[in-house]
């Protein structure tokens, strides 16, 4: 819809991308925007795909799901999930930020089908988006000693990319107010490293 911004943050159950969506929405709300979030997941068990749709506008409240072909920004915690969401909601102009580390579906692990070839997957993502930036998100989170920090690394990358137009300070404020005190420092550091990834060609910060 004209005047609306449509973001999907996608990943795999257990990666915590729902939290990243909540933080992004809180930033948009603090900016005075009319924001809506829709979490899309199946049963509560692990291993399934989980996507959060975050949308904002200055007008009427939007419904929780992004319409097909209306996706502006895709933040994917996993490359296969990036392709899944882009196929369903994407348009040729979508800007994507994609964490490089794959998470194997149970059927791949069980040998029932193969995980797509990395080169084929990335080249298709490049062709299906306006821009597709690869982010060393998991690597950065692991370097920080906590894989769950992937959330704020990816948020940092999103902020650093300039795609959403919210200031880093607004994100940092939200991280401080929304997360339990004992996780704040770790996540602020993760966010900072993410900022560099978003704007520095997607390579891990030194």
């Amino acid at each position: 819809m004209k005047g609306s911004t449509n973001v999907v943050i996608t990943g795999v159950g257990g990666q915590g991308n729902v939290l990243a969506a909540r933080l992004l929405a809180a930033v948009a709300l603090a900016e005075g925007l009319e924001v809506t979030v829709g979490d899309v997941y199946g049963l509560t068990q692990r291993g399934g795909s989980v996507a959060s749709h975050v949308r904002w506008t200055e007008g009427h409240p939007l419904p929780p799901l992004v319409p097909q072909g209306a996706l502006d920004i895709l933040v994917a915690f996993e490359p296969l999930e990036a392709l899944r969401i882009q196929s369903q909601f994407g348009r040729p102009e979508t800007a994507a930020l994609v964490n490089e580390s794959p998470v194997m579906p149970i059927g791949v692990q069980a040998g029932r089908f193969p995980y797509p070839d990395a080169a084929a997957l990335w080249s298709l993502l490049d062709r299906m988006t306006g821009s597709c930036r690869r982010v060393a998100g998991s690597e950065t989170a692991r370097a920080l000693g906590n894989v769950q920090a992937l959330n704020t690394v990816m948020l940092g990358a999103l902020c650093g990319s300039g795609l959403v137009g919210f200031e880093a300070g607004a994100f940092e404020e939200t991280i401080r107010s929304e997360l339990p005190a004992r996780f704040v420092d770790l996540n602020l550091e993760a966010f900072k490293r993410g900022l560099a990834l978003g704007g520095a060609g997607g390579k891990a910060a030194e």
Binding site: R91, P92, E93, V108, L124
Partner: peptide, 24 residues
């Protein structure tokens, strides 16, 4: 707006493997 080209979507369908639910 313009949709994504059908040949790319078809290619994506080929590559997309499901993420089935599983007992933990």
């Amino acid at each position: 707006g313009e949709p994504l080209p059908e040949d790319l979507l078809a290619r994506a369908r080929d590559l997309l493997v499901p993420r089935e639910l599983s007992f933990c």
